[in-house]
Simulated assay, not measured.
Amino acid sequence: MQAQVEAYNAHDIDTFASCYAPDVTITDLSGKRPVVTGTEALKKAYAFLATMPKAFHVDIVQRVVNGPVVVDQEQVLGLPADKGKPRALAVYEVRNGKILHAWFPPRE
């Protein structure tokens, strides 16, 4: 889990994607974004990282691990002042050392 956070913060899309299972599913539970399936789709969905300022990153405020399930509360930093410092919740299922599923509940 920590490796994917570090790759995300380094804006290293290939290393980030390598932390996920080939058949990963990423679901935005707000319904605002389509489900991402597979690491190639994941790379496309996270391609924005390559264009973000170096200061853009997430800090893990709290992590809870229960068997294969990891829940991270994240603080997003490095956004323009008008965007603030939003917090996000991420729920992951890890199998065989790779993230198999990720769910992002709505912030409101």
Rank of each mutant, 00 (worst) to 15 (best):
V65S: 01
G38K: 02
A41K: 10
A45N: 06
A41P: 09
R63K: 08
G78M: 06
V35A: 04
Q62H: 15
F56K: 03
M52S: 07
A41R: 07
Q73I: 09
K44A: 15
H57D: 12
I60H: 07
E40T: 12
E40Q: 15
V69D: 14
H57E: 12
T39L: 06
V70I: 15
T37L: 02
F56G: 08
G38D: 01
V69M: 11
A50G: 13
P34Y: 03
P53Y: 10
M52C: 07
V35F: 01
V69E: 15
V71G: 06
G38T: 01
Q73S: 12
V36Q: 03
T51W: 09
A55F: 13
T37G: 00
V76E: 09
I60S: 11
K32I: 11
A45T: 03
A41E: 08
D72C: 11
V61D: 06
Q75R: 10
A45S: 09
A50W: 10
P68R: 10
V35N: 02
D59K: 05
F48E: 00
F56P: 09
V70P: 02
G38H: 00
V64C: 05
D59F: 01
L42N: 09
H57Q: 11
I60L: 10
Y46Q: 06
P53D: 13
K43F: 12
E40R: 14
F48D: 00
A55H: 07
Q75P: 01
G78T: 12
V65Y: 04
G67K: 11
F48K: 02
A45K: 02
V70Y: 03
L49S: 01
N66Q: 14
K32Y: 01
V69I: 15
L42Y: 14
F48M: 00
V71R: 03
L42G: 08
A55D: 14
Q62Y: 13
D72P: 12
Y46E: 04
A50C: 10
K43P: 04
L77M: 11
G38W: 00
V76Y: 04
G38M: 03
Q75N: 07
V35L: 02
Y46S: 05
G38S: 03
E40I: 09
V69W: 09
N66P: 07
M52E: 07
V71L: 09
K32T: 13
Q73D: 13
T39I: 04
V69G: 08
G78H: 10
L42M: 14
L49H: 02
V36N: 00
E74C: 03
D59E: 05
A41W: 07
D59L: 04
V65Q: 02
A41L: 11
P34A: 12
E74S: 03
A55Q: 06
V70S: 06
K44S: 13
T37K: 04
